[in-house]
């Protein structure tokens, strides 16, 4: 099964829509609760990173027999130092974003913790590709 969603940079009102849709589909498929929770956390954080830090993006979800693969590809500034960005507490979020309670620098660590496989590719000035895989038990 394949699902696709668009994300607009700066549009916090619709943040969480893809996560919510994917959660519904996984529930319908009878996927284990713990696995759904992990995927929802990781996808939400990846989504919000596009909204908060990039210009626009696309979420591509592929659900197979034994795993779910989520690709979040954005057009944006890219991440200059991925190791630094992965550190808990590191954030370049704007004041406006921080006022809303985002920008704690916990999103990427949350993604790492809640996925079985994580691959981040980025190009400065072009964008970032986040690939996340979770296996069903």
């Amino acid at each position: 099964m394949k699902l696709t969603y668009n994300i607009q940079g700066g549009d916090f009102t619709h943040a969480g829509h893809p996560s919510s849709e994917v959660k519904k589909v996984l529930k319908q498929l009878g996927i284990e609760g713990k696995t759904i929770k992990n995927i929802v956390i990781a996808l939400y954080e990846a989504e919000v990173n596009v909204v908060a830090h990039a210009w626009k993006g696309v979420v591509d979800v592929e659900i197979d027999e034994n795993k779910i693969t989520v690709l979040v590809n954005d057009e944006g500034p890219g991440i200059p130092d991925i190791d630094l960005a992965m550190q808990a507490g590191y954030s370049t979020a704007s004041d406006k974003v921080r006022e809303m309670g985002f920008g704690a620098g916990m999103g990427l660590p949350n993604i790492k913790k809640n996925t079985d496989e994580l691959l981040i590719e980025t190009e400065i000035g072009k964008g970032t590709k986040v690939k996340m895989v979770n296996y069903f038990s």
Partner: peptide
């Protein structure tokens, strides 16, 4: 901090916060 709640809150809990915008309900 929304990512803190996303990562650490658990099903069935009440969430105490001063954030009032709608992303709170999405989370």
């Amino acid at each position: 901090l929304l990512s803190d709640v996303m990562g650490n809150a658990r099903e069935g809990e009440v969430w105490i916060t001063l954030q009032v915008h709608q992303n709170v309900m999405a989370i």
